[in-house]
């Protein structure tokens, strides 16, 4: 039964991915990436990785879709037709995919207790209840055993926030400076948009 569900979910994932590549409407593509994340969350649940599924559903299907739509509001809704042929990109994608599938052939079977991953630290993590008294192993691994990694991850999220703030959020002081500059030099009104333009373009190009 689970086999059928897995095949069904993966088939839906593939169908969504192919639809996204064929769409020209960016709005529909953004919504479909949300669907893709939600389907990913579904099969992660089928693989018993509930924590990852939860994150995928909240981040992938929730927040990133909203942010993608907010970004779309700043630009057009239609993708431009590509000028070059699509054969080379298709070839690159197929070759990479084939190499990745070839790489998985060596992997141990899913859930195999004799797999090397389950031999080193995993047994200690699974018996961590005596040390931490926390029923959810994922939480104790993430926050306690791998506390350094999570600290690094939080720093990455923080850095991402700072990056977006630097690129997109213009501070009040900067605005006041610009206003006072414009008032001092008393430039004609036509020059103002020109002055602002280059910076806006750089910021938008970086994000989009």
């Amino acid at each position: 039964m689970t086999f059928v569900i897995d095949i069904l979910l993966l088939a839906m994932l593939a169908a969504t991915a192919i639809t996204i590549t064929r769409l020209r409407s960016l709005f529909a593509a953004a919504m479909l990436t949300g669907v893709y994340s939600f389907l990913s969350a579904c099969w992660m649940t089928a693989l018993d990785a509930v924590d990852v599924a939860f994150t995928e559903a909240a981040v992938g299907a929730g927040i990133s879709t909203v942010i993608m739509l907010a970004a779309l509001a700043l630009t057009t809704r239609e993708e431009k037709r590509p000028k070059h042929s699509r054969i080379l990109p298709l070839f690159v994608v197929c070759a990479t995919g084939a190499v990745l599938i070839y790489g998985t052939l060596d992997m141990p079977r899913f859930g195999d207790p004799a797999a090397p991953v389950h031999q080193t630290v995993a047994p200690r993590y699974l018996q961590s209840y005596e040390e931490t008294h926390i029923p959810n192993v994922v939480t104790s691994v993430l926050a306690s055993f791998r506390g350094y990694d999570t600290l690094g991850e939080t720093a990455v999220v923080f850095t991402a926030g700072i990056g977006v703030m630097l690129l997109l959020v213009r501070s009040k002081r900067l605005k006041q400076d610009r206003k006072s500059k414009n008032n001092e030099s008393e430039e004609p009104a036509q020059d103002n948009p020109k002055k602002k333009d280059p910076k806006n373009h750089i910021a938008e190009n970086c994000i989009l």
Binding site: T139, S144, L151, G161, V164
Partner: peptide, 24 residues
């Protein structure tokens, strides 16, 4: 320790996500 650390992660993530949304 885990409670405090998770609280720190939650506060940072929530503030960053709202900031990114407001930024756009």
């Amino acid at each position: 320790g885990i409670l405090l650390v998770e609280l720190g992660v939650g506060v940072t993530v929530a503030a960053v996500m709202v900031t990114i949304f407001f930024g756009f």
